[in-house]
Amino acid sequence: MSSLQWFLTPYEFSPAVLLASLLAAGWYGFGLVRCARSGPVPGAWRRLAYLTAILLIYAVLQTRFDYWAQHMFFLHRLQQFVLHYLAPILVTAAAPGRVLAAALPQHFTRHRPPLGDVPPLRLVRHVLLDPVIAVAFFAGLVVLWVIPPVHSYAMLSAPLYAVMNWSMLISGLIFWGLILDPRSPRRNGVLGYGSRIAALFAVIASQGAVSAAIGLSVGNLYPIYAVCGRLWPLNPMTDQKLGGMVGFLAALTCIAAVLTIFHRMLGDESARKATRADADTGGPGHQAPGPVSSPQPGIPGGAQDP
């Protein structure tokens, strides 16, 4: 067996991960074909971001990396960073909503009320996509899975391990879909910029506290890695410190998100001023969008436009 083949063979095959990845890629691909028939398709960077996100999620869950992540704490933290931050942020950056919606049968797209108002989906939207719940879900999971006894059981129990990975990915998609929603809150009634920044600071606080607690701890918090065997004989305290540093990387990502939102806010602000100035002078600038706020009616994370 070649080493590539060895790396690509899932350590623990999960039909759910394989099906979800194929579905996510196939749905998007079908939507792209439909979009191309009726009008413009998203730019190459957006398509690439979407594909990269799916490949990353699949890679950390269904290749040899999964085995490495089970047997080295800092690699486990990297895996969770991909599931909770990196991949969902890439999905949001790809703004795949229009493409995914285009793949739906015509019946659904013409249907009124929109798909998100179908009773079971409405419940999902009201509960899971509620900003307060989504932020609490996201920040709570940051803490939950690294509580030492909980972490030990998650690494020992195969079903609990799957619950951990899926919960991180789903909460990541919901959270980043809300926070980095490309639509401007000025026109679309999506979460306001102030609330987004406040939510990010709540996550920075929990992520920072957890990372400091892990990275600066003088005791070995996770003896489970010695019990089950480390990938190579790395000093447990070094492993733990590296794991804490991955947590700081996550907190830094949130700070970068705050800056992105400030940038959009300023863009929106100048667009509004320009519109007002144009209105005053009777100029033609009414359709000028903000420089950063995407004019695309994206539906991030599969959420439906309310």
Binding site: P148, P149, S152, Y153, V218, G219, N220, P223, I224, V227
Partner: peptide, 8 residues
């Protein structure tokens, strides 16, 4: 399983 070890 969690942290029985006080050793530094």
């Amino acid at each position: 399983g969690a942290c029985p070890c006080p050793a530094r």
